[in-house]
Amino acid sequence: MSINHCSHTLGVALLLLSALFLSNDAIAQDSTRYQIQTRDGNTYYGHIVQKEIEYILFQTDNIGQITIKFDDINVIRRIGKDVATERYRESNASYHAPEVYLFRSSGFGVKKGEAYYRNAWLILNELNIGFTDHFSLGLGMMPFVEGSLPVWITPKLTLPLLKDKVNFGIGSLNGVALGESQSSFGLVYGDLSVGGPSTHISLGAGKAYEEGELNPELLITFSGAVKISKNLTLISENYTLQDFYLYSLICHQNFSAVNIQYGLLIFDTDFGNLTLPWIGLVVPIKTRF
Rank of each mutant, 00 (worst) to 15 (best):
Y189D: 02
D164C: 04
I260Y: 13
D61R: 00
V188I: 10
S183Q: 14
V49T: 05
L14A: 05
T38L: 03
L192Q: 04
L57T: 10
T269G: 07
N24D: 01
V188C: 07
S31A: 10
G113K: 06
K81L: 12
D30H: 02
L17W: 10
Q59P: 06
L15C: 08
Q242T: 05
F58N: 05
L161Y: 04
R288S: 14
N128E: 02
A177N: 15
H134M: 11
G204S: 03
S256G: 13
D61I: 00
I201H: 06
T132V: 14
Y247Q: 12
A84P: 10
N238H: 10
D268A: 09
Y116W: 02
L264V: 08
F103M: 14
E52H: 02
N119T: 07
I201A: 11
S106P: 10
S229Y: 03
P155R: 04
N231M: 04
K156M: 07
Y247A: 12
Q59H: 07
I48V: 08
W121V: 09
Q29Y: 00
M141V: 14
A225R: 13
I235C: 15
I170K: 04
M142K: 14
S184W: 11
I53C: 00
L241I: 03
S105G: 09
P143R: 08
L265P: 15
L122M: 06
P160Y: 06
G140L: 10
I170W: 02
W121S: 08
S183I: 14
I76C: 04
A26S: 00
L203D: 01
K51S: 00
H8D: 11
K156L: 06
G138Y: 01
L264R: 03
G272A: 09
G140Q: 10
I250C: 13
E86A: 06
Q50A: 00
L214W: 11
V151D: 13
L281W: 06
T38R: 04
A225Y: 11
T287C: 03
R288W: 14
